[in-house]
Amino acid sequence: MLNAFSVHAQPSCPDSPLSPPGRPGRLLRLCLALGALTFVMYVLAPLAIALLPPLRDYDRVVRETGIMPGALYYSDVPQTVDGEFNNRDAIRFRVRAAEKSR
């Protein structure tokens, strides 16, 4: 039986004591990666928002509404509650009331 995640986990771990290059080289790689990440986060990503109008508008909406675009499931998005109440109650009360009056 093919096992999903864990079987590949242990053998594929880049093993610190054995894998080349040596400790200073690996620390340098970490510093470079962190530097690149910081550059993307503090310079590149905000710059794209500032320069691209659709992205800028989108950013404004996200900040105003407080929506979490990265939320995983509907239960992580409070706006879903608003949507559900709006739609359920519309069908439950307003559509039924309209049907009754006909």
């Binding site: 508008d57 989108y58 909406v61 996200v62 509404t65 929506i67 979490m68 675009p69 990265g70 939320a71 995983l72 499931y73 509907y74 992580d76 998005v77 706006q79 879903t80 608003d82 949507g83 559900e84 709006n86 739609n87």
Partner: peptide, 29 residues
Amino acid sequence: DSTGAVAAAGAFISDTAMYVAATIKMIQN
């Protein structure tokens, strides 16, 4: 794909669009 992104994209259009978008996504969830 993502529920949060659905709500944000819907809110970009209007409250009604966000309500419908979020509810459809919730049903799909």
